[in-house]
């Protein structure tokens, strides 16, 4: 599904990613944990195609294709989805209108017939039901006046509607109370399947209690310094990132 090979990137003169290697197979859930400033969000932005980053080395293959050469919107249409840490407000545009444009852009890209307003409405209501989201969100303006929790839930609803093959969740758990965390996690879990992979970026082990990963990676200073199973998350929670860093330094030494 996704193969990241020696990915190095910088913003301006600042080198953020210093050689990331990661392989995600179809159906796998990978958690990426790491302290602030380790490059987690940069990695997710580069995968989704945000401008302003310069890839200095390495490559990313998505379903065998060169992901980095695809325009942002094409990546999405090909099945890459990024749930934003800070979802953006678009005033005057309803969620359903926006989502219909997004879903139809994907269908068109796949050479399929676009949905009419009626078809889309029943489709998206069904999706809202599966991820247990309030239908009322659909008629509201995109993220405008949403609480932090609503914004995150809206991201999950968009993910459900776009049915991505690779979903990157950038700190989707941040700012959520425990109830909202459960709802969001449920949304993610129902989306899990043998053809869909997840890259779950988080600070805390908390989310991973609900969304149980197959693999956990520790990102620090632009590199993956340790990989393991879900138990690695517990170890990190207990011992902190310093432990992983020291161990990594020891390995190098």
């Amino acid at each position: 599904m996704l193969e990241i090979k020696n990915l190095c990137a910088k913003i301006g003169d600042k080198q953020i990613l210093k050689g990331i290697n990661l392989t995600v197979k179809a159906g796998e859930v990978h958690a990426i944990m790491g302290p602030n400033g380790s490059g987690k969000s940069t990695l997710s932005y580069i995968l989704a195609g945000r401008e302003g980053y310069e890839v200095t080395d390495g490559q990313v293959l998505y379903e065998g294709k060169d992901l980095l050469s695809m325009p942002t919107e094409v990546r999405s249409r090909e099945g890459v989805f990024l749930a934003f840490q800070y979802p953006v407000e678009i005033h005057g545009v309803t969620n359903k209108y926006f989502l219909k444009a997004a879903v139809n852009a994907k269908l068109k890209h796949q050479g399929k017939t676009e949905m009419s307003a009626g078809q889309f409405l029943s489709f998206v209501k069904e999706k809202a039901k599966t991820v247990e989201m309030d239908e009322a969100l659909l008629s509201r303006q995109v993220n405008a006046g949403f609480s932090g929790g609503e914004k995150k839930r809206n991201e999950i609803l968009q993910m459900a509607a776009l049915e991505p093959k690779l979903a990157i969740l950038d700190e989707t758990d941040s700012g959520l109370d425990i109830d909202a965390l459960k709802i969001v996690s449920h949304g993610i879990n129902v989306m899990r399947g043998p053809q869909r992979s997840f890259l779950v970026i988080t600070h805390y082990q908390r989310l991973l209690d609900y969304v149980v990963p197959d693999f956990v990676h520790v990102l620090s200073d632009g590199r993956i310094i340790r990989s393991g199973g879900k138990e690695l998350a517990y170890q990190l929670e207990k011992e902190g990132y310093a432990w992983a860093k020291e161990e990594f330094a020891g390995l190098k030494g």
């Binding site: 999405s76 678009i90 997004a102």
Partner: peptide
């Protein structure tokens, strides 16, 4: 970026 990352052209 937000809208493009949902598949909309610029």
């Amino acid at each position: 970026f937000y809208l493009r990352s949902r598949g909309l052209s610029a």
